[in-house]
Design a protein around this nucleic acid. Structure first.
Length: 502
RNA sequence: UCCCCGAUAGCUCAAUUGGUAGAGCGAGCGGCUGUUAACCGCUAGGUUCGAGGUUCGAGCCCUCGUCGGGGAGCCA
């Protein structure tokens, strides 16, 4: 292999040249005297075409039996061809087999989530997962870029955590030289100390929550970025959350358009993510939940879902009937696949249809003082075509450190950002209580031991200032931006209840 | 912790309401010079999640358990 090694995503710069690609066999098709090797190298897919000419009979026969995911180096001449994935292909002159793979478990056909999660270490090689990983990388890049360019200083906060940030039930306990400590579920308390040193700071790391949640929005280990700013006020906090969210979406849209399109994301939704977001105070949310508008919305949604279900059921019937008459094998298979997907979707719809009346009741019966439920958040975000900032919750349902609103001490100056399209909460944050006496009182009200928070109280003893910040969940943000249904696909190795392998 | 659904070939699913366990993909072999999850032919592949029960007979019905999916609560 004498030619220069290049990557698939740079093939357009090498048309007419002989080059080497190093990677893996994604799929292959053979047609007697020509083989199509669908090849991947981490930067993209490329079709390599190998013809059975007299000088390449041995090579042809050797490559013919290569299994999916065999590793190989392919040498050939780059040419433009519309029929090929990516628009370029390689006319093969030589192949070096690095490793022959037999019986690769993940085929290009449909697999169930359990099987794929057990093979997560291999699943990462699939196209969709590849695209999601690249979007995630860019979301994280956007986060760091925004903060760094705006003069935030990174402060790494501890993962072994002596005191709870929030409530103790959702903590993972660890034996720390005989002492029971917890894995951090937020870096916020510690980052506040950094904030009073450096002004504008952030922490960014893994976060652990032992909540026994089995839903498409939850992980037990996830990544969170938490900016914290001194001399900030509530208005500034909202502005920061909005700017931050917009910067992430904009950067990702700019650099990962191809991946988002591959994932089937409707980009027009993302283009709408512009300041200002919708602003709702908690009390306004209650009015909204009790309003005729919500009732109408849910009734309309119910009607739409019923129609969609009827339509799907009709399609399933038609496709099932067609299966009998269709002769070609691949057509049968395609129909079978369509039917499976439609059934899945129909199941989803039935569940929604069943739940909507319940959600209507929940919304109508919502009383001041309760925390917003998942269904309430979904309804609110569905009613808006861009993210919604919900603020000023009752102090009882929020953490002890959140700053009491001086105009209405029943509520705190907090902020949740709900992503659009029903993706739920991606940001949660607040102004922090800067008054020593109020904070101490709040710690006691929550039944916490003030001794454990002595160092935190010091921050109010010595040079206390108004300050605030928030946490943004990386996985939920990636799920929203990519438009994928389940958060478990947004991280390479999802940790969920009962899931620890691989 | 609670509610709903599920477990059949390596994978994805069937099995006409309790009567001899099948198909496609994948694997192996062969055919085909432009395939797009290619196609065509042949071959191999099963303790129907586990334990118990009902029955002449259980993949199917009942009880318990294990694992998985979705949701409630809680949350990023």
């Amino acid at each position: 292999m004498q030619a220069e090694t290049v990557h698939v995503d740079k093939l357009s710069e090498h048309v007419g040249e002989e080059v080497v690609l190093k990677g893996w066999l994604y799929n292959s098709r053979s047609s007697g005297k020509v083989q199509f090797l669908i090849f991947r190298d981490g930067t993209g897919l490329c079709q390599a075409v190998l013809e059975k000419t007299d000088d390449k009979v041995n090579l042809f026969n050797e490559v013919k039996h290569l299994g999916q995911e065999s590793s190989l180096c392919v040498q050939g001449i780059v040419r433009q061809d519309e029929r090929s994935v990516g628009g370029y292909e390689l006319a093969v002159t030589d192949v070096q087999i690095v490793h022959k793979t037999e019986g690769y478990p993940i085929t290009l056909k449909h697999h169930g989530p359990d099987f794929l999660m057990k093979h997560r270490h291999l699943h990462l090689r699939s196209q969709r997962q590849w695209a999601i990983a690249r979007v995630r990388h860019t979301v994280v890049e956007a986060i760091r870029k925004y903060l760094n360019e705006n003069d935030y200083i990174l402060v790494d906060t501890p993962i072994f955590s002596p005191a709870a940030g929030e409530d103790k039930q959702s903590l993972f306990n660890v034996d720390y030289f005989g002492e029971e400590v917890a894995l951090a579920q937020t870096g916020q308390l510690h980052v506040e100390a950094g904030c009073l040193s450096l002004g504008k700071v952030y922490c960014f790391g893994p976060t652990f929550r032992a909540e026994k949640s089995k839903t498409r929005r939850h992980l037990t280990e996830f990544w969170m970025v938490e900016p914290e700013v001194a001399y900030l006020d509530m208005e500034g906090l909202v502005e920061l959350a909005e700017e931050f969210t917009c910067a992430i979406v904009e950067h990702t849209l700019k650099h990962r358009r191809a991946e988002l399109e591959l994932l089937g994301r409707d980009l027009s939704d993302l283009k709408k993510v512009q300041r200002p977001f919708y602003q709702l105070r908690y009390s306004e949310v209650i009015d909204l939940l009790h309003s005729q508008k919500i009732k109408d919305h849910l009734e309309a949604k119910l009607e739409v879902r019923r129609k969609q279900l009827a339509e799907l059921e009709k399609n399933i019937e038609e496709w099932t009937a067609q299966q009998e008459s269709v002769k070609k094998q691949w057509q049968k298979e395609k129909l079978a696949q369509q039917i499976l997907e439609a059934r899945d979707e129909a199941g989803d719809l039935r569940e929604q249809i069943e739940n909507i009346p319940y959600h209507m009741e929940l919304a109508a019966a919502f009383e001041w003082g309760k925390d917003l439920g998942g269904s309430d958040e979904t309804i609110i975000s569905e009613l808006h075509d861009k993210p919604v900032c919900v603020t000023h919750y009752p102090k009882e349902v929020k953490a002890f450190y959140m700053r009491l609103d001086r105009d209405d001490p029943r509520v705190v100056e907090n902020l949740d950002v709900l992503a659009s399209q029903g993706y739920g909460e991606i940001i949660g944050g607040s102004m922090r209580e800067e008054d020593f006496d109020i904070l101490l009182n709040r710690i006691k009200e929550f039944g916490l031991d003030p001794a454990a928070y002595e160092w935190y109280l010091d921050l109010r003893r010595y040079g206390s200032v108004p300050h605030g910040g928030f946490g943004l969940g990386v996985e939920r943000t990636v799920a929203w931006i990519t438009g994928i249904k389940h958060i478990r696909e947004t991280i390479a190795y999802p940790r969920m209840m009962g899931k620890l392998y691989p």
